[in-house]
């Protein structure tokens, strides 16, 4: 394990260190101390590193991550793991707006709550939220899975494409073209795997599934009221 003190080094020096760790080294575990809510910490990492960030982080922590397993031992600001490609970003606390926005792959776990627009325009990522998510979550969500163990805020899944949403608590207000769908056996199996990966102790049978009605995929004047 190697330690990096952000207070002493600054964000750029730490990121550059993470970018230039040789592919064939066994120095895989890095601990970042004193993150102080700074922005863009450990964004753009492109290697199978284990990164522990010991405190709260600002915007875009773990953004565009590839392969790294990043654990934030605190709360995360806007856009945590935005556009993640692969790997894992794990938030021990709560996450602000747009968590996992446009992310293509990997796993984002938020043990606490996530604010509005969680999973906005997600393109293949799996997101598991231990608490609740705010309004407009999964807006225009394209692919992947969003699991919410608490409640979902207003307009869940507005203009959703092919992403799958699982909510254990209340989801009273669905967005345009988002509907409740049948929870079939394959969905229960997928959800069980997601909960297991996120170390969340919930029964898949207690969740409901939501997805696209696919009525807005091609313009039809008779559906104009939905826009």
């Amino acid at each position: 394990m190697h330690e990096l003190d952000l207070k002493a080094l600054g964000v750029t020096a730490i990121n550059q260190k993470l970018y230039h760790i040789p592919k064939d080294t066994n120095e895989r575990h890095w601990v970042i101390r004193n993150p102080m809510g700074q922005h863009a910490i450990a964004c753009g990492v492109d290697a199978p590193l284990l990164i522990d960030i010991m405190g709260h982080v600002g915007f875009y922590c773990g953004g565009m991550n590839k392969e790294a397993e990043i654990t934030i031992h605190g709360h995360a600001g806007v856009g945590v793991a935005e556009n993640m490609m692969s790997g894992i970003v794990w938030v021990k606390g709560n996450a602000s707006e747009s968590a996992g926005a446009t992310a293509n792959g990997g796993l984002l776990v938020i043990e606490g709550d996530a604010s509005s627009r969680c999973g906005i325009s997600m393109k293949g990522v799996d997101i598991v939220v231990g608490g609740s998510v705010g309004h407009m979550s999964a807006f225009m969500a394209q692919r992947g899975n969003l699991v919410v163990c608490g409640d979902a805020g207003e307009a869940l899944g507005d203009s959703i494409y092919e992403a799958r949403l699982y909510v254990k608590g209340r989801a009273d207000n669905l967005g345009s073209d988002c509907i409740e769908k049948e929870m079939r056996e394959e969905h229960l199996e997928d959800l069980a795997k997601l909960l297991d990966r996120a170390k969340m102790k919930h029964r898949p049978q207690d969740f409901r599934r939501y997805g696209s009605a696919r009525k807005l995929y091609n313009f039809n004047v008779d559906h104009a009221d939905a826009y």
Partner: peptide
């Protein structure tokens, strides 16, 4: 039909844009 959003999904306003630009510079 593919619609693209009119606002960025993870920033709003000039203060956020400054942080977004910082992230792009870091990466």
């Amino acid at each position: 039909d593919q619609r693209s959003a009119c606002r960025h999904p993870d920033w709003t306003g000039p203060d956020d844009l400054e942080i977004k630009i910082h992230e792009l510079r870091e990466i």
